[in-house]
C-alpha cells in the first residue's frame, strides 16, 4: 500500500466516477430528471459488453462499443418510460424520480432473472503491459481507463460546446420554455440527452469492469459514488463535477491510507455534507455565484 499505488488508483476511480457524475449532471440540468435508474443502465451495459465479448469478439474496441451502445439504449428506455409520458405533467421532478427508481427496481430484478446472480467478468480490453514511471507502476488498464474516460468526456463536452445539438441541449438546460419557442423539441432533445448520458454510463461500466465484476446490483455503488460527486460538484455543473471527482478521489486515497478502507465512505459523506452545508448547490455554487440567484 504505497502512496503512488493509492494515488493512481484514486485517479482512475475518479475518472470513472467522474464520467458517471457528468452523465447524471447533464441529465438533471437539461431534462430535469434525477435519473436514479442510472445504476441499472450501468449494470445493463456491463451485461451488454459481456454478451458482446461472449458472442462477437473479445476485441477491446468491440466490447467498449457494445457497452456504450447498450448504455445508450438503456438511456433511451429510461427516457421513453420515465420522461416522455410525464414531462409536462404536474410534479414531474418527484414523479420522474420515483419512476426512475421503479425502472431501476424492475431492471435489476430482470437482469437477475435473466443472467442469474453470478457475477461475470469482461476480458481485459487494454491488454497486459505496464510502465514504470518514477517508481510508480502503471498497468495498462489504469492508463487505458484514464485515457479513454478523459478522451470521451472531453469529446462529449466539446461536442456540447460547439455543435448544434449541443447548443440545443445547453439552451434547454437554461430555459426550457424559451427553448421550445426557438424551435427545440423537448422530447427529441430528451432522447438525445438520455442516449448520451446512457452511453457515458456504459463507458464507465466497461471501464470499471476492468477492476470489478459485473453483477445485477453492481450498478448501485458506482451510481451512489457518481451521485455524490455530482452532488458535491453541484447538479448541472460539469466543471464542478470534475473538481468534485478530483477532491473525492483524493479523499478516498488519503482516507484509505491514513485511516483504513472501511472509513472511506464515512469521510466521504462527512466531506460532502460539509461542502453542501457551506454551499447548498455544491462546488458550482462557489465557482459562479450567478447560478444561485
Amino acid at each position: 500500500m504505497d502512496v503512488g499505488f493509492i494515488l493512481t488508483n484514486a485517479i482512475v476511480l475518479a475518472c470513472i466516477y467522474g464520467t458517471l457524475a457528468i452523465g447524471l449532471s447533464i441529465t438533471w440540468s437539461s431534462v430535469g430528471l434525477i435519473n436514479l435508474g442510472y445504476g441499472f443502465i450501468f449494470a445493463l451495459s456491463g451485461y451488454g459488453a459481456w454478451l458482446a465479448s461472449q458472442y462477437i469478439s473479445t476485441n477491446g474496441v468491440v466490447v467498449l462499443t457494445a457497452g456504450v451502445l447498450t448504455g445508450a439504449l438503456g438511456g433511451l428506455l429510461v427516457c421513453a418510460l420515465a420522461f416522455i409520458p410525464i414531462h409536462d405533467k404536474p410534479n414531474f421532478t418527484v414523479r420522474g424520480l420515483i419512476a426512475t427508481l421503479a425502472i431501476s427496481l424492475i431492471g435489476t430484478q430482470a437482469l437477475l432473472y435473466v443472467f442469474g446472480p453470478r457475477s461475470k467478468n469482461l476480458p481485459d480490453i487494454f491488454g497486459f503491459w505496464k510502465i514504470n514511471l518514477a517508481g510508480i507502476v502503471l498497468t495498462s488498464d489504469k492508463i487505458g481507463n484514464v485515457v479513454v474516460s478523459i478522451v470521451v468526456v472531453t469529446a462529449v463536452l466539446l461536442w456540447m460546446r460547439s455543435s448544434r445539438r449541443g447548443l440545443e441541449i445547453r439552451a434547454m438546460m437554461m430555459n426550457p420554455h424559451a427553448a421550445s419557442i426557438v424551435g427545440i423539441g423537448v422530447r427529441k432533445t430528451g432522447f438525445y440527452v438520455m442516449a448520451i448520458t446512457g452511453g457515458l454510463a456504459g463507458l464507465a461500466a466497461v471501464l470499471l469492469s476492468q477492476t470489478y465484476y459485473i453483477s445485477p446490483f453492481g450498478g448501485l455503488a458506482p451510481m451512489i459514488k457518481g451521485v455524490s460527486i455530482a452532488l458535491c460538484g453541484g447538479l448541472g455543473s460539469v466543471r464542478g463535477a470534475v473538481i468534485a471527482a478530483i477532491i473525492l478521489g483524493l479523499n478516498e486515497a488519503l482516507t484509505a491510507r491514513l485511516l483504513g478502507g472501511q472509513y472511506v465512505l464515512i469521510t466521504q459523506f462527512i466531506l460532502i455534507i460539509l461542502i453542501l452545508l457551506v454551499r447548498p448547490r455544491g462546488i458550482a455554487g462557489i465557482l459562479d455565484r450567478a447560478r444561485e440567484a
Binding site: L36, T93, I224, V227, S228, L231, I272, P280, G282
Partner: peptide
C-alpha cells in the same frame, strides 16, 4: 439547507 433532490440523493448515500 439543502434542496429536495440534493437531500434525496444524500440520504440514499
Amino acid at each position: 439547507r439543502l434542496d429536495g433532490f440534493y437531500y434525496a440523493l444524500l440520504t440514499i448515500g
